[in-house]
């Protein structure tokens, strides 16, 4: 019934998530980065060749741009057009909180102040960086 609840039976990385993760790294860093930097940011969880081929796939889809670096090879950056395109497509949804409550699944929602203190404590107790 609930196959995905901590039985360890779930594959570590569902298909399609790899591209999302690499793209997320590029956006988070916000500057052109080399595949090695991406690999480092991901905490060496992926092989260099995996990062390379993922970046190539994203480039083919025009979701990232690449520029040659001085040392040879390429530096990759996310395509800004794509984010503007996303913003335009999502404007209506972002403006309608009513719909978001009903249809969209959000990661977190805002907190009352008393919960804020509690979360701070939990975060520190967990030794978060």
């Amino acid at each position: 019934m609930n196959h995905a609840n901590g039985d360890g039976a779930v594959p570590r990385r569902p298909p399609g998530m790899l591209e999302d993760e690499v793209l997320a790294v590029l956006w988070a860093l916000g500057r052109p980065v080399t595949p090695a930097e991406v690999q480092l940011e991901l905490g060496d969880r992926l092989a260099y060749t995996t990062v390379m081929s993922t970046l190539s796939r994203l480039h083919r889809k025009n979701l990232v741009t690449r520029t040659p670096t001085a040392r040879g090879g390429y530096a990759y950056a996310p395509t800004m057009d794509e984010a503007e395109h996303t913003a335009r497509a999502m404007t209506e949804l972002l403006d309608r909180r009513r719909d978001r409550a009903g249809t969209l699944a959000r990661f977190v929602s805002s907190l009352p102040p008393e919960d804020e203190a509690l979360l701070q404590r939990l975060l520190h107790a967990e030794g978060g960086d």
């Binding site: 591209e19 999302d20 997320a24 994203l58 979701l63 913003a87 719909d99």
Partner: peptide, 25 residues
């Protein structure tokens, strides 16, 4: 209506965008 709007927004992104769509905000 809410579901229709969500689908419409998703369709507007087109097939080129992957599953992850980033808002530069």
């Amino acid at each position: 209506r809410a579901l229709h709007r969500a689908r419409h927004a998703s369709a507007r992104l087109g097939p080129r965008t992957g599953r992850l769509a980033v808002l530069d905000q």
